[in-house]
Design a protein around this nucleic acid. Structure first.
Length: 414
RNA sequence: CGGGGUAUGGUGCAAUGGCAGCACGAACGCUUUGGGAGCGUUUGAUCUCGGUUCGAGUCCGAGUACCCCGACCA
């Protein structure tokens, strides 16, 4: 991608009305744009990051047997009446009227769609278990959106639903998903900062697990067991202040943001929708369900919260919009030509590369923007480096600058 | 939803009730060229409606939007 053609604009001034670091950086670097409170556009750079996160999640869901589907945002109100969530979740549900008096819910989530859908597929124990997921927009009328992507009204979520014939099978799969989640957060570069956190199950079950990433801008408080690598949240600490794994009572208190959660819903939705199956003993039984969510945008915000310095974002390679930021800091024809060639060669090799070809920018400004954007590798071409048939390669977030022969670039970057 | 705050060029800020300025950005010219360079010229703004006043960006009322604290939150 040529930077001169990129649809974005960086900004030196710190944004007003912005408190969290990720919010400020994502806006100033041109990754996102705010349309209204809690509603954001993903600009080309931001969309590339979001897609990378999406693909990491998708790959891992497929790995644990998930089949991808796409459910509608627009849902009939009746389904929400059936589960009474039209009342329970009243405050955050967007209700709208269509032609006539028909009322619709803009889906804040999809149990009310997936459960009746499963009824059309599940009849026998032979049809179980199965796992379906989607990556799709959720709409929630949050009472107070905040901190940029960390709390919004419209956001992409991966939601996985599992269907089981018995509790043991649900329990087993729940742990499979837990492992998969740990892998996802690790691949996104926030593994060490993300804790499996025991939480109450709300209206679904006694317990659930949240995945909490440590960050200043977090809105939750978690308590990390000093012996195990797990945590408990505030509600649990109030009821039963012991580590569920080792009974330890010493905890470290930290602020965190919930990037994912996993739930055993049991029969919470299969009963109201009468989702049942015929078991081996010829009796009808309700299907047991689990649901597992990850907020993609929030995850993106959490990554920035976790990975930045005073100059800008430091993207983990796995989610970065580009792997390489190529910069020519001199505009003479010789340097330009050499840089252009590197750009084309890298593209041929399939390396994701952003080329700062802007002619009216000084070296300092290009470096400043480069740091702000946070692309993992910065490659600088100048007369000086060309004299040695080389370019400078610097990893974002590290001080070391390496002189690399042009013929070796592809190898090194790969 | 309860409480608090803010609203001025594209962005960030100023302006005792008295000519709306500054910095950044953008555009043009010349000079520069390894960490946001210099000089000159130009561009562009008071959220909406109403009120007070000779005069309102400033005071008052209503509205709207955004931000913060809290409550809420698969």
């Amino acid at each position: 991608m040529l930077q001169s053609k990129l649809f974005y604009k960086t900004n030196k001034n710190k944004s007003a009305n912005v408190d969290s670091i990720s919010h400020d950086l994502l806006i100033r670097a041109g990754y996102i744009d705010q349309l209204m409170a809690g509603v954001y556009t993903f600009m080309p750079l931001g969309f590339l990051v979001l897609k990378n996160i999406e693909n990491i999640i998708r790959r891992n869901m497929v790995e644990i047997g998930g089949q991808e589907i796409l459910m509608p945002v627009l849902q009939p109100k009746e389904n929400w009446v059936k589960t009474d969530r039209i009342n329970i979740e009243k405050e955050i549900i967007f209700l709208l009227k269509g032609n006539g008096d028909k009322e619709y819910v803009l889906g804040p989530t999809h149990e009310e769609v997936i459960t009746p859908l499963a009824k059309k597929v599940v009849f026998s124990y032979r049809d179980l278990p199965f796992y379906v997921f989607q990556i799709q927009e959720k709409l929630r009328d949050e009472l107070r959106p905040k901190s940029g992507l960390l709390r919004v009204r419209e956001f992409a979520m991966k939601d996985l639903y599992s269907f089981h014939a018995n509790q043991a099978d649900l329990d087993k799969y729940y742990e499979v998903v837990a492992k998969s989640y740990e892998k996802i957060f690790k691949e996104c570069g926030i593994g060490r900062l993300t804790y499996r956190t025991l939480a109450s199950g709300g209206s679904f079950s006694k317990y659930s697990d949240e995945y909490q990433t440590l960050t200043q801008a977090g809105e939750d408080t978690i308590y990390i067991c000093e012996k195990c690598n797990i945590a408990i949240n505030k509600e649990i600490k109030a009821e039963n202040p012991k580590c569920p794994k080792c009974n330890n009572t010493e905890f470290e208190e930290k602020k965190a943001i919930e990037v994912g959660n996993i739930f055993k819903m049991g029969t919470r939705f299969s009963v109201p929708f009468d989702l049942k199956f015929t078991d081996k003993d010829a009796h009808d039984k309700p299907v047991l369900m689990g649901c597992y969510g990850i907020g993609l945008g929030r995850l993106m915000g959490a990554i920035v919260e976790a990975s930045h310095d005073d100059k800008g974002i430091i993207w983990p390679k796995s989610v970065a919009p580009f792997l390489v930021h190529l910069i020519n800091i001199e505009n003479n024809p010789k340097v330009k030509k050499a840089t252009q060639k590197i750009y084309i060669d890298c593209q041929k090799e399939g390396i994701e590369i952003l080329y700062d070809d802007r002619e009216n920018k000084t070296a300092g400004e290009k470096f400043g923007d480069s740091d702000l954007l946070g692309i993992p590798y910065r490659v600088v071409v100048s007369e000086k480096t060309l004299a040695k048939n080389s370019v400078e390669v610097k990893e974002r977030g590290k001080a070391k600058i390496q002189l690399v022969k042009i013929s070796q670039i592809n190898k090194i970057l790969k």
